[in-house]
């Protein structure tokens, strides 16, 4: 009995250490945004009084609102479009499964192995010819359809009972109707999980917008952050503040959708 107790204590200690480790960087980031640059460099770990001053400096040196809105718009459009295209495909690959589609799926999975660095120059050439630089469409196109998301939806659809599909057909519902009116509502957690993953990836995307977003008006948050570190002198106070601001949306999304995220992933790993 005593041994069991000890094991339980050990478990909690272990969990606390892990949690401390995962939370501390956040604390550091938030504290940093309230301090002056000089103090952050010196390693100050307590809340300071420079939050408002940092914010004012940040707002006056960069187009914060503009970059935030660009990131938000790009990430939202990307998420909606990706979910639409990939859920249809994932559903299609599973529900209408045959040899041809399995082969195609295998082929599409190969795309996960392609390093982005290799695609950069050819993609840029295509996009500049198509006049898609500085546009949201240009931002989302390369990530609109990803093998990972298709695969994720296909795995989830595996648990979707075929009988339901048959029954719906007997009831006279069309194929698209089955997808939108039965599959989508039932699979809401899967969609939520996919939305979180896609939104985060789009929100944090760095390399691609770096190349195609050429004007100041289309700058996104990650580009804004690296811009702050490019000078002869870096103001770490406003850097930490902008890192905090950039993390907020994904953090909120994560906190509010966490349960659904787990449920959604649950459906796909059965």
């Amino acid at each position: 009995m005593k041994q069991k107790h000890l094991a339980a204590i050990a478990t909690y200690v272990f969990l606390c250490v892990v949690c401390l480790f995962s939370v501390f960087p956040f604390y550091f980031m938030i504290v940093g945004s309230t301090n002056q640059s000089v103090d952050i460099v010196k390693g100050r770990l307590f809340f300071g009084t420079h939050l408002i001053e940092n914010f004012k400096t940040l707002a006056s040196t960069v187009k914060l609102g503009n970059a935030f809105w660009n990131s938000m718009r790009n990430a939202l459009v990307n998420t909606v479009a990706s979910l639409f295209v990939c859920s249809l495909a994932g559903y299609g690959f599973q529900i209408y499964r045959d040899k041809g589609k399995d082969t195609l799926m295998g082929l599409l999975l190969l795309s996960m192995m392609v390093p982005f660095a290799a695609l950069m120059v050819p993609l840029f050439r295509m996009f500049s010819q198509a006049r898609l630089l500085d546009t949201t469409v240009g931002f989302i196109l390369p990530t609109i359809s990803t093998a990972f998301l298709i695969f994720f939806f296909r795995q989830s659809a595996e648990s979707f009972p075929m009988e339901t599909v048959q029954a719906a057909r007997v009831d006279g519902l069309g194929e698209l109707g089955i997808f939108f009116r039965i599959f989508v509502p039932i699979m809401a957690p899967t969609f939520a999980a996919a939305a979180i993953v896609t939104f985060m990836a789009a929100w944090n995307n760095y390399l691609w917008p770096l190349i195609i977003m050429q004007s100041q008006e289309s700058q996104t948050m990650p580009l804004l952050i690296t811009g702050l570190t490019a000078g002869y002198t870096t103001d770490y106070g406003i850097l930490m503040l902008s890192v905090t601001i950039t993390t907020l949306p994904t953090l909120i999304l994560f906190f509010t959708q966490q349960k659904r995220f787990v449920e959604g992933v649950l459906g796909s790993v059965k």
Partner: peptide, 19 residues
């Protein structure tokens, strides 16, 4: 505003793509 590394990358990408 374009950090030097980014500027260099954009420059080479555009010139290599004849854009």
């Amino acid at each position: 505003e374009t950090p030097w590394n980014d500027l260099q990358q954009k420059l080479i990408t555009s010139l290599s793509a004849n854009a």
